[in-house]
Design a protein around this nucleic acid. Structure first.
Length: 185
DNA sequence: AATTCAATCAACCGCGGTCGT
DNA sequence: TACGACCGCGGTTGATTGAAT
């Protein structure tokens, strides 16, 4: 049987210090993202692997954008959320340099309120209608709302594409590479 | 200037799927 | 095949910061 991933008795919790960050960065730069279970001990960190993974992926990764969300990103999140629901990791996968946690936080703190208020006014109404109609046509084709991959190799149906020029191709791929070629980022 | 409240975001928790023994 | 650990994900919490009073 496997050993437990960490002994919680001997792990730190809470905010990460600069030294901890540096240890994690140094270790991953040398050895890459490997086994999170053994990483803390190997890197000399008193953290559980889960915490290291989260810190790296949400904050320390060099390819992360640290600036605010742009309008196009916000628009894309709204559209993807309409298609995927709360599949934050999938949504983040279409946004280079963004993490699932970041997208989730942004949705909960900004977009949700914006959409709620726009329901009363109009702002996003047209967009929402567009999204709903796309979702409706998918349902009519007997595709569950969150089932965006088809059964033959993961390629989405061409008809699932919205009228927008935003890339809603949900084929599994390395997002940054794929988007580098199609986006201006 | 002090206090209160709301917004934001990093981090934790628990669950489900996958994989190793 | 069963059991249990690992990994990744989504939901939630708590600390911090800024605005309002």
């Amino acid at each position: 049987m496997r050993k437990p991933c960490c002994d919680k008795q001997y792990t730190n919790k809470g905010a990460w210090s600069q030294q901890e960050d540096q240890k994690l960065i140094d270790y991953i730069q040398k050895h890459g993202e490997g086994c999170w279970r053994s990483l803390p001990q190997a890197a000399g960190l008193l953290r559980c692997g889960k915490s290291c993974r989260l810190r790296w992926r949400n904050y320390l990764r060099p390819d992360l954008k640290r600036d605010g969300f742009g309008e196009d990103e916000e628009d894309l999140i709204i559209r993807l959320h309409a298609l995927l629901g709360n599949r934050w990791s999938l949504i983040a996968g279409r946004l280079p340099g963004r993490t699932d946690n970041e997208v989730k936080n942004y949705w909960n703190s900004h977009i949700r309120k914006k959409l709620e208020s726009s329901h009363r006014n109009t702002g996003f109404t047209r967009l929402r209608a567009e999204i709903s109609s796309a979702a409706r046509s998918k349902r009519q084709a007997n595709v569950p709302e969150t089932q965006v991959f088809d059964s033959n190799g993961g390629k989405p149906e061409p008809s699932n594409k919205s009228s927008s020029d935003i890339n809603l191709d949900l084929t599994l791929s390395i997002p940054s590479k794929k988007l580098e070629s199609s986006d201006e980022n």
